[in-house]
């Protein structure tokens, strides 16, 4: 049985405000991770402005999402204590999901989900390189007498490969 406790208009207003702030925080944490992901999507044109905004948002999103998480947790706890109804409490718990997801996503590189970076670079002698056909294209470098071939089929997937050739640290990109 719930006992009747009078709620002042001021308390009611505070609660409403807290819910509103919670909603805004959720929206911000989603926006900082989703806007750059949408702006720099493959097969879409990008403007220099969009790239700049994406860079800015991506630089700030790890810290912004953590602050959003802390703030929304604090608000949720405060609202939890104040409200006893189970469905409002469920909404509070559910509202944490997007903020948690955004905090996690801000720490991911989703381009590397699509194109796994080469974990360990390993090389073969020509006599052992049965994995590339004679007509297969390679990117070739020779530095200080050392020659290396990077088959385009592998490069077109990993895109970025670090190596040291003839004593010079290089990054092969395709």
């Amino acid at each position: 049985m719930e006992t009747f406790s009078p709620v002042s208009p001021q308390q009611k207003f505070n609660r409403k405000l807290a819910w509103l702030i919670l909603l805004v925080i959720i929206a911000i944490s989603l926006a900082v991770v989703m806007i750059p992901a949408m702006l720099i999507m493959p097969f879409k044109p990008q403007t220099p402005r969009a790239v700049e905004l994406s860079y800015w948002l991506k630089s700030w999103s790890p810290i912004v999402t953590v602050l959003a998480l802390i703030a929304s947790l604090a608000l949720a706890i405060w609202l939890w204590i104040g409200k006893r109804s189970w469905w409002r409490r469920s909404v509070l718990v559910l509202s944490m999901i997007p903020v948690l997801a955004a905090t996690w996503f801000a720490r991911q590189n989703h381009f590397e989900w699509m194109f796994n970076p080469l974990g360990q670079t390993a090389f073969a002698k020509i006599s052992e390189a049965g994995f590339v056909g004679d007509k297969g294209m390679v990117m070739a470098v020779t530095i200080n007498g050392e020659s290396v071939a990077y088959p385009v089929r592998q490069m077109g997937y990993h895109h970025v490969v670090h190596d040291t050739v003839g004593g010079v640290p290089i990054v092969a990109t395709y």
Partner: peptide
């Protein structure tokens, strides 16, 4: 490439 650089090394697939 391999005709020109028989001593070269080739990136292995992952």
């Amino acid at each position: 490439w391999k005709r020109e650089h028989p001593e070269g090394r080739v990136l292995k697939p992952d």
